[in-house]
């Protein structure tokens, strides 16, 4: 464990908690893409099946349980409890255009042709594009609540910190996982446009509104 991975995990945890609290306290999921949250729940489910097969550390196991629990709770709040506030018209990204290619790629390019490894690979590829429905929804509505931008910033920062963690681990441990690195680079690049808007607008106290 290194400082970059630790802060990456904490940033990811913060993002998940911020979103869950935002929906719970405001009793509304306006501006939130339910499709992205479903994709994240799939990402955690397919990636953390090893909870059933191997124990790495208390930290590892507890974080995985928290991620899975919070992501399903968030999906539940969006599609069940606060369904009336779900903006389905703007959450119109065709996720099948993500899941099918990612599923195919996971079967073709992986480290080991075993079920757990293919599911893990699928999860890594899916996570790199899982935020697209959310970014697409913001581009359609033309704006985002400030709390949502903080959620997105933490979500994007987490994988950016993981990129530094992988540089650190390659240099000090000779460890690297090309699949995770390439997907992580793609994932972080997808946030660049948002990062620019976040730094130039939200951090200056303005509301994030895209040029219509």
């Amino acid at each position: 464990m290194n400082i970059f991975r630790l802060f990456g995990d904490l940033s990811h945890l913060a993002a998940i908690i911020i979103l869950l609290l935002k929906i719970w306290k405001s009793r509304s999921c306006a501006g939130i893409s339910g499709k992205s949250q479903i994709l994240f729940a799939i990402v955690f489910t397919t990636r953390y099946l090893d909870l059933l097969t191997s124990f790495i550390s208390l930290y590892n196991t507890s974080m995985k349980m928290i991620y899975i629990g919070c992501s399903y709770a968030t999906v539940y709040l969006i599609y069940a409890k606060f369904r009336a506030t779900y903006d389905g018209n703007h959450d119109s990204f065709r996720v099948e255009f993500l899941i099918v290619p990612v599923g195919g790629l996971a079967v073709l390019i992986n480290h080991d042709f075993s079920l757990l490894e293919i599911l893990w690979t699928f999860s890594i590829y899916l996570e790199s594009v899982a935020i697209l429905p959310q970014l697409f929804m913001i581009s359609k509505t033309g704006e985002a609540e400030t709390i949502t931008t903080h959620y997105l910033f933490c979500q994007g920062l987490y994988r950016a910190l993981y990129l530094i963690n992988w540089i650190w681990r390659f240099y000090f441990e000779g460890f690297f996982d090309m699949i995770a690195i390439v997907a992580g680079v793609v994932q972080t690049i997808l946030y660049c446009d948002f990062f620019y808007l976040y730094v130039t607008k939200v951090l200056k106290g303005k509301k994030l509104s895209l040029p219509a």
Binding site: D9, D50, S57, H111, D112, F175, D177, A180
Partner: peptide
């Protein structure tokens, strides 16, 4: 190869 490198990351 991924065989020996455990998946210790989240």
């Amino acid at each position: 190869h991924s065989g020996e490198c455990k998946k210790d990351e989240l």
